[in-house]
């Protein structure tokens, strides 16, 4: 009995020791900044003068500022453009990957290159490509007599950024879907074939429902990504035109490091994080299903 207890204690200690580097990492690089962020959100601080406790004033100011609602609307708009676009294209790409007879891995890695490319570098490429006198618009103007105001029209600018972000994450998400597709047992399709199901029925009745875990995962990733868009608007549009591409992260950065309102920026980041958490939670509640592959 004594020996069993000692062994249990020993195992317990080993467990703590093994997980301690990660726990220390979390405490230092996540816990401390998080507590500091919460404290900061209740203060007025410009980095230089002593912090002043102001209660919930930052939050009151935030909700009464029309710019906060512009940020919320822009993020919502981005999600509406980005999520359907990335879901449809990455599922299509994943299906195409699985159908490929040769060079499957090569194809998958080729699409993943976009994901590892520098945000600054591809922002410059897209700004050139989509500029008013860029190759795309020149072709449209010469062939059809019109241009698309990719980054210069307030309604188009966010859509253009969504296209760029879709291009970046398409390959990565397709790989996740590819893994999901490979999990689906082939017998199910064979059984459906015997029952006379066509391709459409097979896709909507077998593939899509059984891809649910992957879809949920992509949705979670895509929603949190939507609240963290920064490089593209920072590099290309600066939040314009007419504030059409202002995002939460851009505003947090501007408020903290350009306007020296660290407390206000902290409160904005807390609200943005809470909103993203709430949307992710609701999405999971709505679309997540228990999947049984047997």
């Amino acid at each position: 009995m004594i020996r069993k207890t000692t062994l249990k204690k020993h195992e317990n200690l080993k467990g703590w020791l093994l997980s301690s580097p990660y726990l220390i990492f979390i405490l230092v690089f996540w816990g401390y900044p998080f507590v500091w962020l919460v404290v900061l959100s209740f203060t007025k601080w410009n980095f230089m003068t002593p912090k002043k406790f102001i209660g919930i004033e930052n939050f009151v100011k935030l909700f009464s500022n029309p710019f906060f609602w512009t940020l919320t609307w822009n993020t919502f708009k981005f999600m509406c453009y980005f999520i359907p676009m990335v879901l449809v294209f990455s599922i299509t790409l994943a299906v195409a990957f699985t159908k490929a007879k040769k060079f499957k891995a090569f194809l998958a890695i080729s699409f993943l290159v976009a994901n590892v490319s520098s945000g600054v570098a591809y922002s410059i490429v897209f700004s050139q490509l989509f500029s008013s006198n860029g190759p795309l618009n020149r072709f449209l103007y010469n062939s059809f007599g019109f241009i698309i105001p990719w980054f210069t029209n307030p309604n188009w600018a966010m859509f253009s950024i969504a296209i760029m972000v879709t291009w970046k994450f398409l390959g990565y998400y397709a790989l996740i879907f590819m893994a999901g597709l490979q999990m689906i047992p082939k017998e199910l399709y064979e059984a459906a074939d015997l029952d006379g199901a066509n391709k459409r029925t097979r896709f909507f009745k077998i593939t899509l429902p059984l891809l649910n875990p992957s879809i949920v995962m992509i949705m979670v990733l895509a929603i949190s990504l939507s609240f963290g868009i920064f490089t593209e608007p920072y590099m290309i549009t600066g939040g314009g035109p007419l504030n059409g591409t202002q995002t939460f992260l851009l505003a947090i950065y501007t408020d903290a490091f350009e306007r020296y309102r660290a407390g206000y920026a902290a409160s904005l980041s807390i609200i943005a994080a809470s909103m993203s958490f709430a949307i992710i939670y609701a999405t999971r509640k709505i679309i997540e299903r228990e999947v049984d592959f047997s």
């Binding site: 050139q128 500029s131 006198n133």
Partner: peptide
């Protein structure tokens, strides 16, 4: 004139 010229117009 226009708004977005791209790099080094």
């Amino acid at each position: 004139t226009t708004v977005a010229f791209g790099q080094h117009p």
